[in-house]
Write a protein that binds this DNA or RNA. Sequence first.
DNA 1: TACGCATAGTTGAGCTTTCAATATCAGCGG
DNA 2: CCGCTGATATTGAAAGCTCAACTATGCGTA
Lengths: 161, 161
Amino acid sequence: MSEPRWLTADEQRTWRAYLAATKVVSERLDRQLQRDAGMPTAYYEILVALSEADGGELRMSELAAFTRSSRSRLSHAIARLEQNGWVTRRSCPTDKRGAFATLTEAGLATLVSAAPGHVGEVRAALLDALTANQVRHLGEIMATVGEHASAGCPAASCDDD
Amino acid sequence: MSEPRWLTADEQRTWRAYLAATKVVSERLDRQLQRDAGMPTAYYEILVALSEADGGELRMSELAAFTRSSRSRLSHAIARLEQNGWVTRRSCPTDKRGAFATLTEAGLATLVSAAPGHVGEVRAALLDALTANQVRHLGEIMATVGEHASAGCPAASCDDD
DNA sequence: TACGCATAGTTGAGCTTTCAATATCAGCGG
DNA sequence: CCGCTGATATTGAAAGCTCAACTATGCGTA
């Protein structure tokens, strides 16, 4: 804590712009999905992950890994999604501790009908503001940050609990 | 909804990297602040905004604008911060509807002691991963996104209620 | 003055997330 | 086979956020 090495002017500007922009973008996406599809972004991402999985189902652990979510959060979320009829649970035959989450027809239908509006909002909130070069740059930067932050992080790899 | 104009490969990569990176970064910051300072990031930002204001106080509306928060969220947050002894409320003499939020000594002390750890985590999670050029680029891109998204947004400018 | 409407801020209910248990089961060494 | 350790998943309570009222006040206008 001695000499905390403060932020330079460039860093300060970047950090504040980052904070502001990410907040606005995520709020827009949340609002759009909640309004048009009746679910928060986190649940949409769960449905996407399931829809891209073999047979539309995944083990809870894998699903948690894909969505970078804690097991606890996922459990609650799946409970809610099950209640909505978008997902069902299936216990794993080979490992009695395990459970699969399976996308239902209704869940897939909801996802399909929600996707265009969501993609539209992603464009409107983020991509449309940028040139093709900026999109590529942002992708590289974010990929770097993602790898770096996950690697050097004490709490992101080793989940909760 | 006809022809939703899907994402290109570049856009898809960028979007997914963006989602992953922003999620990891915000989780790291949240955890660090919660662990070391006993408050979520949103509350820390409120304290920062107050500490930078004249006399350490701001009208609720202005504070909401600075922190890009809804009035409702801010009300709840200030109630909590007041309960912690970090902020006090003062009713506005010239407009009896209005209220000021004022940073207390204890609040400032908490902020000062939390700041180095927070800055360290900002570096560790985001800045250290990037070259100086990338930091500058990211700043420009995020500034663009912030302006664009706030401008063309139906729900970000006109707050809640 | 009285009416109407907009503004500032608060409140309560419902929902999601987090954190700390808890229960169940797999794998392994004795 | 028994017991131990670690992994899988769930649960309940507490906290924060969102949404929709609601209160109280300012302000323009007839």
